[in-house]
Nucleic acid binder design. Sequence first.
RNA 1: GGGCGAAUAGCUCAGCUGGUUAGAGCACCUGUCUUACACACAGGGGGUCGGGGGUUCGAAUCCCUCUUCGCCCACCA
Length: 995
Amino acid sequence: MSLTDGVPQPSATAPADGDLPTTYRAADVEAALYAHWQAAGTDVARADRVTRRGGARTPFTIVMPPPNVTAILHVGHGLNNTVQDVLIRWRRMAGDEALWVPGTDHAGIATQNVVEKQLAAEGSSRGVLGREAFVARTAQFVETTGGAILDQLKAIGCSADWTRTAYTLSPPLSAAVTEAFVRLFEEGLVYRGHRVIHWCPRCMTSLSDEEAEFNDAQGAMYHIRYHVDGDPSRSIVVATTRPETLLGDVAVAVNPSDARYTALLGAMLVLPLNGVRIPVIADDYTDADFGSGAVKITPAHDPNDFEVGMRHGLGAPVIMDAEARLQGIGEAVDRVPPELRGVDRFEARERIVNMLRETGALVKVEPHAHSVRHCYRCDTVVEPRLSDQWFVKMAPLAAPALEAVRTGRIRIMPERWEAVYINWLEGIRDWNISRQLWWGHRVPVYYCDGCGTAPIASRTAVTHCAACGGPVRQDEDVLDTWFSSWLWPISTLGWPGQGSPGKGSIKGSESLQDSRIKGSESLLESRIKGSESLRDSRIKDSDPLSDPLSADLQAFYPGDVLVTAPEILFFWVSRMIMSGLHFMGEVPFHTVYLHGTVRDMQHRKMSKSLGNGIDPLDVVRLYGADALRWTMVAGMGLGVDVLLDPTDLDKSFAPGRNFLTKLWNIGRFLLTKVGTLPVAALESVAPASRTIADRWILDRLDAAIRECDAALGPVRPGADGRWTEAERTQGMRLDAYADTARRFVWNELADWYLESVKPRLAAGGDDADVARAVLVHAFDNALRLLQPIIPFISETLWAKLPPLANGAARGGEFLCTSAWPVAQPQIDSGGQDFELVRTAVVAIRQLRNEYKVKPGAQVAVTLVPAGSDVHSAPQLADTIAALSRTTVTVHAAHGAGAAKAAHAVLTGGSEVVIAMSELIGTESAEDTAKECARLTAELATTQKILAGVTAKLANDSFTSRAKPEVVEGARAQERDLSQKVESLTRKIEGLCGSR
RNA sequence: GGGCGAAUAGCUCAGCUGGUUAGAGCACCUGUCUUACACACAGGGGGUCGGGGGUUCGAAUCCCUCUUCGCCCACCA
């Protein structure tokens, strides 16, 4: 589908009169605006602008987790890509050369399954088609319908660099896959292994450990009696959950220290059903306390049994075929009785259990809860299967990947996943990378059947045997999809590049590998330092600009942030770290951001089969992409799941929709009031001419910018490339960022400043111009803060801002490529006086409400300033009057008395008396002495707390270790507390100071 | 079986090496079509911070313990 399908096509430009429609209609704006951005190339990154290529900008790179090429957009993609887009847009505005690499994954098993399903519907199969035709068919399927998801991402505003769209099965990325395989082969890190692996009898392929997922299941433990050959009085009982495999048993193992069975060691048992004779052996593998303490050993159908069999030099008879039907293979043909041949494993289990029961061999069956591995693609129960597969030796790759996280070159957020990552890598096992599929990268290994020379791994197609000149055949298997995915951060940027080493790289690879395993120093680092031996092994020249690495790779690698879900931490994230370190000598990113899952109100994961999904494009049509984005970002704590109700989109997306409407109305009102005439730049407004409201809102803006920056956090680690302990957990709080921006624009700018400025704008004159300047400045910056989250509406409103009087540009044609705001603390203070206004207004409103004063009725208020407020009170009176719709007069009186007066007078319904800065309500002390005692006690407490905070701030371990914003918060608290002490002291003097 | 995390308002969550009256969004109650916005405005109700101990002048926050959920890992067949 195309982005603009079904969307009305308005003229891309605004109405000539500059008027904004009364309601925001996202559909009228988004598609056209996106097209504008595309035409202007706002999302395209350029290597030559990057410092690493002699440019001036710092790169900021994110690679998009490539969706399956056949996928259609679901809300999980929406969440994942929105997060990335927010980060990319933020950094783009902040002046980085921001590159977001998009693309798709060929998704071996998943895609092959889809096409096979199609074929089945047509009454055909891949077997009928044959390999070549099947691959062609799949490629064509991908060609015509694949990649639609990328267009859908455009509809939600993703600002990826589409000129760099990648695909794992494209020629350049396939070359990277081959290169990686051959290098690892040459380094001895890829090998062929004969062992029991996970096999999906439906997909008819092997699976890696990660692809065979555990599911809890309620099974049964079958206790079966095996009699000693020729002596039916002696027997041993084995316990198993898979009785059907007994036909392939080669021994029964007991623990050597298990006295119960010592006498039976070495005895020959007779297998029920097929009469095969097997020995009783001793092996530590057996746990005497589990089951019956005797384990049947079936080497071909259980990975542990395979190990035991190897130790004892036993055979490995195969009694099941590839589709998991009982079938004696090869020499084991007679092990399966004729009546069981070709019977499916689960039916066979039932039948075998019945047969055992009839012969009396079944001792008992007890319920047994255990975990069963299932295929992660089709959920079929995985069958352990003995076969030849290609493996990657993981330990040497894992060691530097562990180091990278341990030493802080990579941080994983939320932090608790670091432990999971470390735990997994420490116990990592070799990675089965061959798949018995057709859709994927074919294993680049060639065999000569003629002379039996060792298999050759080759970067280019091999036709003849180098040794004997005879024909060769290529390995039939393809590589695990993740074997291409793990190269994504480097392959999408052009690795291995033009002058890739290729030949001769075996030489010296030993030392190269060793140095990396020790984690001593990265390849890139050593290149910079000019370490000859390392460089020679791989890269011949030393001039970075003519480096064989591609310009993109030089400019944008290492990247910055990886945004994904925790589910693929092992599948993908950890392996990318390994491949990045191994092939490039540098980590592919410094931050791994793991977000939550989108779930429904019952906390169930949204899925097609449950029918509880939300189509992001529905949300876009109903409320706009911005509403979708806002709702997800604002509702997403670090690593926290996002809950949405698929049955009530209106409610689910209310936060986004409501905020957009509010923002639109703020913009509409503000722009109407401000008009289209040029407005003074803030710098050219004399500070002295700013009112306390002006100073206040500028102050709040400054705070908002700082808070947003703090929430988003440090962008990258320091010069040494390592996160400090404190930095590891800082930033990436997108919800806090959204909340701060919302609070500023809604609760501060709109609720207070905008209200307070209405009379000034209406009055006209110089002060109105000051107000216009401040208003436009504040709104301009608010839109900048919001752009990364809600790019469409913010861009639309920004475009309507009146021009600056000095003719200065605001920062380009588009908001999305203009500058991120920089906090500029105001040189003049006074903003805090506005807090008095707010407090007074709130108090008046409360009293009006409490005394049921009619909304339209004007009420006279007497302000009773205390202490130093006396001086500012007259200036504030007008603002208070305007905001609370009252008539305000200033009158000196003492606090408690004033409150009493308020009570009395209000009852009469004509006058309100408010004590400023105390604002004692109706609950004030009847008794001055009581109030004095209370204040004195409060003063004592406050002083105690102040002492505590001061002590904390004097503590070096706090100021140096705690997060900066925490320290700043403590300082602010200290200031507040001392102010409070002062004010309490003053109050006590005023109220109780008669002595 | 091992490891990790969480329990705070009706719901979903903040609460930043212990510090003033524990916050937000949504929901709820009252009033208001106040010329930007009823997808709004104004005001309000609601939490013994899972239970029990402990440390401290002070605990949602630190320690111990119990309970209940959740996640990850795992070759007891």
